Lab assay of single mutants.
Amino acid sequence: GTVHVGDKTYHFPTPDAAKKFAQEIAKKLNLQVTVKNGTWQVH
């Protein structure tokens, strides 16, 4: 899975790992999470 946070991109071996990371970052930074075609965006 891929997660975009601002101008950074993180790659994870599984979709679940990407989802978990995106949700944790969003919670920590009080941001929104959207997913499109398996790519997570934190914004």
Rank of each mutant, 00 (worst) to 15 (best):
residue 1 G to D: 07
residue 1 G to R: 12
residue 1 G to Y: 15
residue 1 G to W: 14
residue 1 G to C: 14
residue 1 G to M: 10
residue 1 G to L: 11
residue 1 G to P: 09
residue 1 G to V: 08
residue 1 G to H: 14
residue 2 T to P: 02
residue 2 T to S: 08
residue 2 T to A: 08
residue 2 T to C: 10
residue 2 T to W: 12
residue 2 T to M: 09
residue 2 T to Q: 07
residue 2 T to V: 12
residue 2 T to E: 07
residue 2 T to N: 05
residue 3 V to C: 04
residue 3 V to A: 04
residue 3 V to Q: 01
residue 3 V to K: 00
residue 3 V to F: 01
residue 3 V to T: 02
residue 3 V to N: 00
residue 3 V to D: 00
residue 3 V to E: 01
residue 3 V to S: 01
residue 3 V to Y: 01
residue 3 V to W: 01
residue 4 H to T: 12
residue 4 H to M: 15
residue 4 H to Y: 13
residue 4 H to L: 15
residue 4 H to D: 05
residue 4 H to P: 00
residue 4 H to W: 11
residue 4 H to N: 10
residue 4 H to E: 10
residue 4 H to R: 14
residue 4 H to A: 07
residue 5 V to D: 03
residue 5 V to E: 01
residue 5 V to G: 01
residue 5 V to T: 03
residue 5 V to H: 05
residue 5 V to W: 15
residue 5 V to K: 01
residue 5 V to I: 13
residue 5 V to M: 08
residue 5 V to S: 03
residue 6 G to H: 09
residue 6 G to N: 08
residue 6 G to V: 05
residue 6 G to T: 03
residue 6 G to W: 12
residue 6 G to D: 05
residue 6 G to L: 14
residue 7 D to Y: 13
residue 7 D to I: 10
residue 7 D to L: 13
residue 7 D to W: 13
residue 7 D to P: 11
residue 7 D to T: 14
residue 7 D to G: 14
residue 7 D to Q: 13
residue 7 D to R: 15
residue 8 K to S: 06
residue 8 K to D: 06
residue 8 K to Q: 10
residue 8 K to A: 08
residue 8 K to V: 09
residue 8 K to P: 00
residue 8 K to M: 10
residue 8 K to T: 08
residue 8 K to W: 10
residue 8 K to C: 14
residue 8 K to Y: 09
residue 9 T to L: 10
residue 9 T to E: 07
residue 9 T to A: 08
residue 9 T to W: 12
residue 9 T to I: 14
residue 9 T to S: 08
residue 9 T to C: 07
residue 9 T to M: 09
residue 9 T to N: 04
residue 10 Y to M: 03
residue 10 Y to H: 03
residue 10 Y to I: 04
residue 10 Y to C: 06
residue 10 Y to A: 01
residue 10 Y to R: 01
residue 10 Y to N: 00
residue 10 Y to G: 00
residue 10 Y to F: 11
residue 11 H to T: 10
residue 11 H to Q: 07
residue 11 H to D: 05
residue 11 H to F: 12
residue 11 H to V: 09
residue 12 F to N: 00
residue 12 F to V: 01
residue 12 F to L: 04
residue 12 F to W: 03
residue 12 F to Q: 00
residue 12 F to C: 06
residue 12 F to D: 00
residue 12 F to E: 00
residue 12 F to R: 00
residue 12 F to A: 01
residue 12 F to K: 01
residue 12 F to T: 00
residue 12 F to S: 00
residue 13 P to T: 12
residue 13 P to F: 07
residue 13 P to Y: 07
residue 13 P to E: 12
residue 13 P to V: 08
residue 14 T to M: 04
residue 14 T to G: 05
residue 14 T to K: 04
residue 14 T to N: 10
residue 14 T to F: 05
residue 14 T to Q: 04
residue 14 T to S: 10
residue 14 T to D: 09
residue 15 P to H: 13
residue 15 P to I: 10
residue 15 P to C: 11
residue 15 P to M: 13
residue 15 P to V: 11
residue 15 P to S: 12
residue 15 P to R: 14
residue 15 P to W: 15
residue 15 P to A: 14
residue 15 P to N: 12
residue 16 D to R: 09
residue 16 D to N: 10
residue 16 D to S: 11
residue 16 D to H: 11
residue 16 D to K: 09
residue 16 D to W: 09
residue 17 A to W: 05
residue 17 A to F: 05
residue 17 A to C: 07
residue 17 A to Y: 05
residue 17 A to I: 07
residue 17 A to V: 05
residue 17 A to M: 13
residue 17 A to D: 09
residue 17 A to T: 06
residue 17 A to H: 07
residue 18 A to F: 03
residue 18 A to M: 02
residue 18 A to C: 03
residue 18 A to L: 02
residue 18 A to K: 00
residue 18 A to D: 00
residue 18 A to W: 03
residue 18 A to G: 02
residue 18 A to N: 00
residue 18 A to R: 00
residue 18 A to E: 00
residue 19 K to T: 05
residue 19 K to F: 12
residue 19 K to G: 08
residue 19 K to Y: 12
residue 19 K to D: 06
residue 19 K to M: 14
residue 20 K to G: 05
residue 20 K to H: 11
residue 20 K to N: 10
residue 20 K to T: 10
residue 20 K to C: 10
residue 20 K to D: 08
residue 20 K to W: 10
residue 20 K to I: 11
residue 20 K to A: 13
residue 21 F to H: 01
residue 21 F to S: 01
residue 21 F to G: 00
residue 21 F to M: 03
residue 21 F to V: 02
residue 21 F to L: 01
residue 21 F to P: 00
residue 21 F to K: 01
residue 21 F to Y: 07
residue 21 F to T: 00
residue 21 F to W: 10
residue 22 A to Q: 00
residue 22 A to E: 00
residue 22 A to M: 02
residue 22 A to H: 00
residue 22 A to C: 03
residue 22 A to P: 00
residue 22 A to I: 03
residue 23 Q to S: 08
residue 23 Q to H: 15
residue 23 Q to M: 15
residue 23 Q to D: 08
residue 23 Q to G: 06
residue 23 Q to T: 13
residue 23 Q to P: 00
residue 23 Q to E: 14
residue 23 Q to W: 15
residue 23 Q to N: 11
residue 24 E to D: 12
residue 24 E to W: 15
residue 24 E to R: 14
residue 24 E to V: 10
residue 24 E to T: 12
residue 24 E to S: 12
residue 24 E to C: 14
residue 24 E to F: 15
residue 24 E to K: 13
residue 24 E to P: 00
residue 24 E to I: 11
residue 25 I to H: 03
residue 25 I to N: 02
residue 25 I to F: 06
residue 25 I to T: 07
residue 25 I to M: 11
residue 25 I to C: 10
residue 25 I to K: 03
residue 25 I to E: 04
residue 25 I to W: 07
residue 25 I to Q: 06
residue 26 A to N: 02
residue 26 A to G: 07
residue 26 A to Q: 03
residue 26 A to P: 00
residue 26 A to M: 04
residue 26 A to V: 03
residue 26 A to R: 03
residue 26 A to I: 03
residue 26 A to T: 02
residue 27 K to Y: 09
residue 27 K to M: 11
residue 27 K to T: 10
residue 27 K to V: 08
residue 27 K to F: 11
residue 27 K to N: 09
residue 27 K to H: 09
residue 27 K to I: 09
residue 27 K to C: 10
residue 27 K to D: 08
residue 28 K to Q: 10
residue 28 K to G: 05
residue 28 K to N: 06
residue 28 K to S: 08
residue 28 K to H: 08
residue 28 K to M: 11
residue 28 K to T: 08
residue 28 K to I: 11
residue 28 K to E: 09
residue 28 K to F: 09
residue 28 K to Y: 08
residue 29 L to N: 06
residue 29 L to S: 05
residue 29 L to V: 03
residue 29 L to K: 04
residue 29 L to C: 06
residue 29 L to F: 15
residue 29 L to H: 11
residue 30 N to L: 05
residue 30 N to K: 07
residue 30 N to F: 05
residue 30 N to Y: 04
residue 30 N to S: 08
residue 30 N to T: 04
residue 30 N to P: 01
residue 31 L to R: 06
residue 31 L to H: 05
residue 31 L to K: 05
residue 31 L to Q: 06
residue 31 L to D: 01
residue 31 L to T: 07
residue 31 L to A: 15
residue 31 L to V: 12
residue 31 L to W: 14
residue 32 Q to P: 09
residue 32 Q to E: 10
residue 32 Q to S: 12
residue 32 Q to K: 12
residue 32 Q to F: 09
residue 32 Q to V: 14
residue 32 Q to W: 08
residue 32 Q to T: 14
residue 33 V to G: 01
residue 33 V to Y: 06
residue 33 V to A: 10
residue 33 V to E: 02
residue 33 V to R: 01
residue 33 V to Q: 02
residue 33 V to P: 04
residue 33 V to D: 01
residue 33 V to N: 02
residue 33 V to I: 12
residue 33 V to F: 09
residue 34 T to M: 06
residue 34 T to D: 05
residue 34 T to L: 06
residue 34 T to R: 06
residue 34 T to W: 07
residue 34 T to V: 08
residue 34 T to H: 06
residue 34 T to Y: 10
residue 35 V to W: 15
residue 35 V to D: 07
residue 35 V to G: 15
residue 35 V to T: 07
residue 35 V to A: 08
residue 35 V to N: 14
residue 35 V to Q: 13
residue 35 V to H: 14
residue 36 K to L: 14
residue 36 K to A: 11
residue 36 K to F: 13
residue 36 K to M: 14
residue 36 K to G: 06
residue 36 K to I: 15
residue 36 K to E: 13
residue 36 K to S: 13
residue 36 K to C: 12
residue 36 K to Q: 12
residue 37 N to Q: 06
residue 37 N to H: 05
residue 37 N to L: 05
residue 37 N to G: 09
residue 37 N to Y: 04
residue 37 N to E: 09
residue 37 N to M: 05
residue 37 N to R: 04
residue 37 N to K: 05
residue 37 N to A: 05
residue 38 G to A: 06
residue 38 G to E: 06
residue 38 G to P: 02
residue 38 G to D: 09
residue 38 G to F: 08
residue 38 G to I: 03
residue 38 G to W: 05
residue 39 T to K: 09
residue 39 T to Y: 10
residue 39 T to A: 15
residue 39 T to L: 08
residue 39 T to R: 10
residue 39 T to M: 13
residue 39 T to G: 08
residue 39 T to E: 15
residue 39 T to D: 11
residue 39 T to I: 15
residue 40 W to S: 02
residue 40 W to R: 01
residue 40 W to G: 02
residue 40 W to D: 02
residue 40 W to A: 03
residue 40 W to V: 05
residue 40 W to P: 02
residue 40 W to Q: 02
residue 40 W to T: 03
residue 40 W to F: 14
residue 40 W to M: 04
residue 40 W to H: 04
residue 41 Q to A: 07
residue 41 Q to W: 15
residue 41 Q to V: 15
residue 41 Q to L: 15
residue 41 Q to G: 05
residue 41 Q to I: 15
residue 41 Q to T: 15
residue 41 Q to P: 02
residue 41 Q to M: 14
residue 41 Q to K: 07
residue 41 Q to S: 11
residue 41 Q to Y: 15
residue 42 V to I: 08
residue 42 V to W: 03
residue 42 V to C: 03
residue 42 V to A: 03
residue 42 V to R: 01
residue 42 V to Q: 02
residue 42 V to K: 02
residue 42 V to D: 02
residue 42 V to P: 03
residue 43 H to T: 11
residue 43 H to V: 13
residue 43 H to P: 04
residue 43 H to L: 12
residue 43 H to Q: 12
residue 43 H to N: 10
residue 43 H to D: 09
residue 43 H to K: 08
residue 43 H to I: 13
residue 43 H to S: 12
residue 43 H to Y: 14
residue 43 H to R: 08
